[in-house]
Each structure stands twice: as C-alpha cells, then as structure tokens.
C-alpha cells in the first residue's frame, strides 16, 4: 500500500515538474510575446495541480492537506487572471500577435 502511494505521488511530482519545465522552455524558446505567455499560463495550472496532489499523497490526510488544497484553489483563480491581465494590457498598448498579421497578409494575397 505504501509503495503504491509513493509511486503515485512520485508520478504526480514528476509530471508536474515536466509541465513546469516545459513551460519554462516555452518562455525562452518561443519567439513572440503571445505564444510565450500562452506557454507559461497553460502549463502553470496543471503543473500546480500535479505537484500539490503529489505532496498531498505524501502528507496523508491532515490540516496540511487542507492548506495545500487552498493553495491550489488560490493559484487556479489568480494565475489565469494574471495572464489575462498581462496579455490584455499588451494588446491594448498595441502589440499585435504575429499570427493575425500573417493571416491578414495571406488573405490579401489570395484576394489579389
């Protein structure tokens, strides 16, 4: 039984770490602001879920578990909103996504 719980929690932790690291690589490797922000915000929530559930499995059911669930709820609420605010202000200050420009250009080309 212990072994199963340990294995599950390690699997969760590893998956969470993988998601976090892939998000970080995304921030560095993507070439444009919106895809970077997308990489960070999309991996963030699931990464938090997996890491915290791995830790919950390790700790057993007590007060610490409740606190960690609170952390998950808090991060799920704030992290997407923070990404939204960031991208919204970037868009309003005039930064256009690359994809939109290329699509417009391609439609122009097809029309002409």
């Amino acid at each position: 039984m212990n072994f199963i719980i340990d294995a599950l929690s390690w699997a969760c932790l590893m998956l969470g770490c993988f998601l976090g690291i892939s998000g970080a690589i995304g921030i560095f490797r993507f070439d444009e602001f919106y895809s970077r922000a997308h990489a960070a915000s999309v991996t963030d929530t699931l990464c938090v879920l997996f890491i915290i559930s791995g830790l919950v499995l390790q700790s057993g059911f007590n007060l610490v578990t409740v606190k960690m669930i609170f952390i998950v709820v808090l991060l799920w609420l704030t992290s997407p909103v923070a990404s939204h605010a960031l991208i919204r202000s970037a868009y309003q200050t005039g930064l256009k996504p690359k994809l939109a420009i290329t699509r417009k250009e391609s439609s122009k080309r097809t029309q002409s």
Binding site: L77, T78, V81, H84, A85, R88
Partner: peptide, 12 residues
C-alpha cells in the same frame, strides 16, 4: 472597466 479583473478582485 476591466470586468474579469474586477470580478476576480472583488472575490479575492
């Protein structure tokens, strides 16, 4: 107005 942010802030 920034509806998403404002609703979220009111909640938090």
């Amino acid at each position: 107005p920034r509806p998403i942010l404002q609703v979220m802030a009111k909640f938090m």
